[in-house]
Amino acid sequence: MRLTLYIWRQKSTTDKGRFVKYEVENASPEMSFLEMLDMLNRQLIERGGEPVAFEHDCREGICGCCGMVINGIANGPAGGTTVCQLYMRHFKDGAVLYIEPWRSRAFPVIKDLVVDRSALDRIMQAGGFISVRTGSAPEAHTILVSKETAELAMDAAECTGCGACVAACPNGAAMLFVAAKISHLGLLPQGQPERDRRAQAMVRQMDREGFGGCSNHRECEAVCPKRISIRFIARANRDFLRASLFYSKSASGKAGATGKTKRCFEK
């Protein structure tokens, strides 16, 4: 296969960046997209050039490291996959490909196709957990979870935190990511006590990180490698709303309490 690649090259966060053209001669349909880039990099290095930086680790679609925009689509035209699991057989011989990093205000470019996604971790740190101290868990079978609920929670829990949803969203929203975690934990009985605070804390942190708002474009769902449904967004919105309405008030059951929101998470 022959390919013409226009790849975004940017030396550092402060560098301006630009597309650079490369010709690839002998790609094969069985290669993964990253293996095709490996081949390009090898040629670049052997000719004394600088290889293209891109992030990857597991190369089996689960770690969430890899990700790039190919011809305007996060993770390329095949849909519902990561780039490490995207195979060249999805492209035509002679194809022209524009390859860019995730574009989002909240994801500054570090180099070439590598971006800083630490904002997603900070959202998790704000509330993406069930507060159970090590050693304090009850026997597992004291918590029953219906099969349907467990499966639904798992559908949400599969999120790899890759950021494709953010890259695909015209608003740069991280709502699918946040909703998946709010839903995963909020569906399970273990997650109920903190359900309201979790929804509030995560959504607030998301706003602080400079992600855009969700206006139901559904682009996120289309590119999500784990095909996480935007129905979880509706669910998370309900949780957030419920939390805004009730959580603050229920913070005190005593007469005379102001009903103002307490600080979400006591530290």
Binding site: A137, P138, I143, V145, S146, A150, H184, Q190
Partner: peptide, 22 residues
């Protein structure tokens, strides 16, 4: 055994039977 207990409490969505048991 306690590891499974810990993970369940954290919200790890292990596969379940229809009865709700693991």
């Amino acid at each position: 055994g306690v590891i499974i207990d810990q993970c369940v409490a954290q919200g790890v969505p292990f596969a379940r039977e229809y009865s709700g048991y693991l």
